[in-house]
């Protein structure tokens, strides 16, 4: 009987591979960030350059942009591995799909969610976000984008076998993003208005824990369905 490598090895190797692949496609890597900055220019041009107006809109806009940028990058999450047959190989290898999905999602978050979070102060500056909003914004985005990537993985897995799954993916995932958007933007808004934000941050953390536990399971199940098609 062939000895299977341990869980840690599987997770580590998948993570390593995904990370290298991610950095090889530099164009894809920059897309969410460019999108993020485009909105930062469009909103003042389209709405108003007035700092007071922008400050009111800032918490919502920042969160909507983070959400859309994640959504844009999701359809590539499993696509190339599905197309070249890697996914089938992984499935017949007998490795737990949960950890492989987890590794892929973690890399997805590292190349979209994390850069967006780190760039958000720039967006905050351009949207004249009040000073009290910056730290809560960083914390809420750090926790929230993780949930976004994890929940998004379910949609990406469900549409993996479809040629043009992009729009369908958005339709499927959008309702599931509602709670994260509500609490994420509420953290920033409450912080600006001087209220306590601990409760909302705890809720965001709970969403993250829940999606860490359940989303890879659902995504793994959905991938099996897609590959067997």
């Amino acid at each position: 009987m062939i000895e299977l490598p341990g869980l840690g090895t599987v997770f580590g190797r998948t993570f390593q591979r995904e990370f290298i692949m991610g950095f090889r496609n530099r164009g894809d890597l920059a897309n969410p960030v460019i999108f993020f900055l485009c909105i930062a220019i469009f909103v003042p041009l389209g709405v108003s350059p007035d700092g007071k107006v922008l400050a009111v809109l800032a918490p919502g806009i920042i969160w909507i942009v983070a959400l859309l940028a994640t959504l844009l990058s999701l359809d590539r999450l499993f696509q190339s591995d599905f197309d070249d047959g890697c996914l089938q190989q992984v499935m017949v290898s007998g490795q737990p799909l949960y950890w492989i999905v987890m590794a892929k999602v973690l890399v997805h978050w590292l190349i979209t969610g994390l850069p967006l979070t780190l760039l958000s102060p720039v967006l905050g500056l351009m949207m004249s976000l009040p000073a009290e909003g910056y730290w809560p914004m960083l914390v809420s985005l750090l926790l929230g984008t993780g949930s976004l990537s994890l929940i998004g993985a379910i949609g990406a897995a469900l549409t993996v076998a479809l040629r043009r799954g992009g729009l369908l993916l958005s339709l499927i995932i959008m309702p599931l993003y509602v709670p994260v958007l509500i609490f994420g933007s509420a953290v920033i808004r409450n912080a600006i208005e001087g209220f306590a934000v601990g409760g909302q941050i705890a809720v965001l953390a709970a969403f993250l824990v829940l999606s860490l536990l359940l989303a890879p399971l659902a995504a793994a199940g959905a991938l099996r369905i897609g590959v067997q098609a």
């Binding site: 379910i154 309702p175 709670p179 509500i182 969403f207």
Partner: peptide, 21 residues
Amino acid sequence: RACAMLALVGTVNIPIIYKSV
């Protein structure tokens, strides 16, 4: 099978969405 999976995911989320809204 894909729809059944999505329906299950949606059902887990419905109470969360309801409470959030």
